[in-house]
C-alpha cells in the first residue's frame, strides 16, 4: 500500500497498465477456450447429454454465451478494485 503511495503518477499508471494487461490476457484466454476449443470436438461432445441437450450443441448455443456475460461483469468488478488500489479515481463527469 505504502509502495503505491510513494510512486509518481506516471509510475502508478505504468504499474496499473501492466496489471490491467495481465487481467485482459487471462480473460481472453478463457474467452478463446470456450469459444474456439469446443467446436473442435463438437461431434464427440455431442455424445454426452447435458440437461437433455447434446453437450457440443449446448456449448455453442448457451454455455459459451453465459461465460461471455460473466467475463465482462468480472472485468468491470476487478478493474474497479484495481482503480482503487492505485488511487486512480474515475470521477463522474
Amino acid at each position: 500500500m505504502s509502495d503505491i503511495e510513494r510512486m509518481s503518477r506516471q509510475e502508478r499508471i505504468n504499474a496499473y497498465w501492466k496489471e490491467n494487461n495481465r487481467l485482459i490476457a487471462i480473460l481472453l484466454i478463457i474467452w478463446f477456450s470456450v469459444a474456439y476449443i469446443p467446436p473442435l470436438f463438437v461431434n464427440q461432445l455431442n455424445q454426452i447429454s447435458f440437461f437433455g441437450f447434446p453437450l457440443g450443441y449446448y456449448f455453442g448455443s448457451q454455455l459459451s454465451l453465459v461465460v461471455f456475460v460473466i467475463l465482462i461483469f468480472y472485468y468491470a468488478y476487478a478493474m474497479n478494485k484495481l482503480d482503487a488500489k492505485y488511487h486512480l479515481k474515475d470521477r463522474d463527469k
Binding site: 465482462i72 472485468y75 468491470a76 474497479n80 474515475d90 463522474d92 463527469k93
Partner: peptide, 11 residues
C-alpha cells in the same frame, strides 16, 4: 458518464 460505467455498461 464515466470509464467505470462504460465497463459495466458492456456487461
Amino acid at each position: 458518464p464515466s470509464v467505470r460505467e462504460s465497463r459495466l455498461s458492456v456487461g
